[in-house]
Each structure stands twice: as C-alpha cells, then as structure tokens.
Design a protein around this nucleic acid. Structure first.
Lengths: 220, 220
DNA sequence: ACCTGAACACCGTTCAAGT
DNA sequence: ACCTGAACACCGTTCAAGT
C-alpha cells in the first residue's frame, strides 16, 4: 500500500501558507521562493493557494511583516528617549538584515501588518513620552524609519564594496584609480575614508546625526 | 520587394542596449522591460544581447545609474553648505521618484556608475568645502544618501496610504479603527498626524533633522 | 566575432472539472 | 467551498549553427 499523499490535517489558510513560505525562504533563500515551492511544501497545488492569497506579492508583504515582527521591543522601561530610540533603530536594522529578503521586499510595497505597526507605535510612543507633539513625533518617526530602511537597503545592495560594503584598502585604491584623473576630486580625497568605513560604523554615525537633529530641533 | 528588416546601421553595443531599454521603460513601464522587448526594439534576438551585457540585472543597474545621472548639480557656486546639500538631496529624490523603476532597482544592487559617483562626489565636495574632515564628510554623505533612498523607497512603496502616502482623513480614521482598541496606543494618538502628512513635508522635515544633526555634531 | 533561431527550464496565474 | 491538474502566456539564459 502506498503511503497517504496528504498527511496534513485541516485545510489551507493564509497563516499556514505564510509559515510554509518562511520555511522555504529560511532553507533555500529568496530565489527559491516560488508559489509552486510553497505549494509543494504543503502537499497541494499552486493554484490552491490563490484561494487564500491574492498574489505572490501579497505573500511577500506578509512575510516581510513577519520578519519585522521579530524586533525585540522593551516598551516603557523607563530609559531616556534617545537610548530607547537607538535600541529600536538597531532592532529594526537587525531584523531587516537577518531576513533573507531583498530590500525591495520591505519597501516596494506598503507593509501595514502587525509587525510593522508595532514598531511604528513603539517609535511614536517613545517620542510622545519625551514630550514631543503629535506632529513632531510623526516627523521624527518617519525620519528614523526612512534612515534605517535606506541604510539597510544600501548595505545589502552593495555586496562587499562601496560606502557600506567595506572592501579592503587595495580594492578601494584600485577602484579609485579607474576614475578619470580630472574628475571626482572630492571622491579622490575623501574616498578612502568613505569607502573603507564599515557598515556598522556608518550606521552608528548616521544614527547619531539623525538623533542629534531630533535633539537640536525638538528639544533645544 | 519586402522592406529591409534591419534598418539600423552598426552593431550592438552596451550603450545602444541601455538606450533601447530606457525607451522601453519610459514608454511601457518596468514590467514590460524584458530582455525580449529590448531586443525587439533593436531588431535583434534576445540571445544577441548577452554578448554585451551579463544579465538583465546588470542592465537594470546601468539604467538606474543613467537616471541618477539626470540630477542637476550646480557645483561650487558659492552658496553655504546647507543650501547646497539640500538642493542635492532634493535632486536625488526627484530623479529617483521620476525614474519608472521600483526602488529595488536602485538599492538591491550596488551602483557605481558615473551618474552615482557624480552625486557622491558632489556631496563629499560640499562637506569638505565646509571644513569637515574626510571621515566626517564620509559619514555625513552616507547619512544623507541613506535617508534619501529610504524616504523615496518608502514613499514609492506606500501607494497612497501610510506615513508617506497621504490618504485622506476618512481613510486614516477608518484604518485606525480597524486596530484592536487595547493596542497601538501611541499610533491612535499620533496616527492621524503621522498618516496624513504629505510625502513632501515628511521629506522636508526629515531632511531638516538630518542636517541639524550635521550642524550640531560637526560644526558646533 | 557576432548574430539567429530554437530550445531549456522554468515562472505566476487561471480555470474547467471534480469532490 | 475548496482543491486538482492542466493549460496559458509568458520569462531569463544558453548554445549549436550559421555568416
């Protein structure tokens, strides 16, 4: 007797589909994340998934929100706003860098699931608790989110070279030497510093700039 | 007699391929930008393009660099650094928003073509001229680039709703009312302000924060 | 050296037909 | 109501064969 082909109990659901998709992603990476691969893992046909998801794109949004939901937020533990916001920004960055998704998955489409809203709420809460107005808290929150997403996207995009990629010194001078000698004068001067900085230090310094801006604009 | 099928003179080249791809993109949008569509426009076969480009991805990087190269930079015209940097940031944003590419095209892969380097060089030049050290200029440049890319990506991704999308007031309160009433307290408070702000004002305010940060950290 | 034409190995999505 | 199985209408990329 052949084994039963459909051992799983219960029917499909959006949640089961998202979970299966995340398993595929974690094990085999983004390029293997096809509708057929998710269906295979659930022992069903690819067409069946469309009763629960509208499209592959919608599935990716749900997955991105799942990863954002992994951020560890310690709400209202009595620290000053800047410490809290720094931790929040580092957590956003961590989950985005750890998610095996291209940056576009988190930006090409709007994500308004619970994982994302939790982070937005936490950021607004920290700024409001520090005494900012609703408008100020909104602008500050948007600014830190924009910065973190941009930093992550550019770091992931530049695989090993460039301002957030930290190639080694030889790579960098080799690259600078390919430039026409009468152009890019500032890049020749500051380029080694710009290109050699680690993604970590670029993020830390950029975050300090943004938060200094919040301080000087909204608290001084 | 049938018309000649191949009226164009000369052979293929990377440059002709990029130009044809941009025409396809401008006329028919990103989803119509297939290797076959570019080949058709050049009256050749899709396979032939691979003698001049390594992959569709490489082609997209070349296209993204082209659009970045459209930024209007008025180098060294004697204005103060902050005015110059603001104009540079607005130009980066403008060309990225006008390019009919998804944000991922500018971030999923590193772009180190002339269009991009010109912008990096201009930013470094403005900061160096203002008296920053190489390291400071590098960090400030990375920070403004991260911020602009993030702001553009999130604005483009959120098509009409969300912090950079500016849905109307009814949409926003309808959305907030779908949230569970015991959660997202800060979002309920500051949400209307956060969600209703126009992408323009969010960008302007965020830019002011970042540049205030540069001032207070590197100039005070 | 460069290009053609066809094939390879896939995709996301739809939909009649079944249960 | 939900799922199967097959098809539709494509993809990016490769490569023998031609010139």
């Amino acid at each position: 007797m052949a084994a039963r082909r459909r051992p799983r109990t219960g029917g499909l659901s959006t949640q089961r589909i998202v979970r299966a998709a995340i398993e595929v992603l974690d094990e085999r990476g983004f390029e293997a994340l096809t509708v057929r691969a998710v269906a295979d893992r659930l022992d069903t046909s690819s067409g069946a998934l469309y009763q629960h998801i509208a499209s592959r794109d919608e599935l990716i949004v749900l997955i991105a929100d799942h990863y954002l939901g992994q951020a560890r937020l310690q709400a209202g533990s009595g620290m000053d706003w800047r410490t809290g916001v720094e931790e929040l920004m580092r957590e956003m960055r961590r989950v985005l860098l750890e998610a095996p998704l291209p940056p576009s998955a988190s930006t090409d489409r709007a994500i308004w699931g619970p994982g994302t809203l939790r982070i937005v709420d936490a950021a607004l809460g920290l700024f409001l608790a520090a005494g900012l107005t609703n408008d100020q808290a909104g602008f500050a929150t948007a600014a830190i989110i924009d910065f973190v997403f941009g930093a992550v996207a550019i770091q992931r995009g530049s695989g090993g070279r460039g301002p957030h990629g930290a190639g080694d010194a030889d790579d960098i001078s080799a690259f600078l030497n390919t430039l026409p000698p009468d152009q890019y004068l500032a890049l020749r001067t500051a380029g080694p510093a710009f290109l050699a900085a680690s993604a970590e230090s670029v993020f830390t310094q950029g975050m300090a700039l943004v938060l200094d801006g919040v301080t000087s604009r909204f608290f001084d």
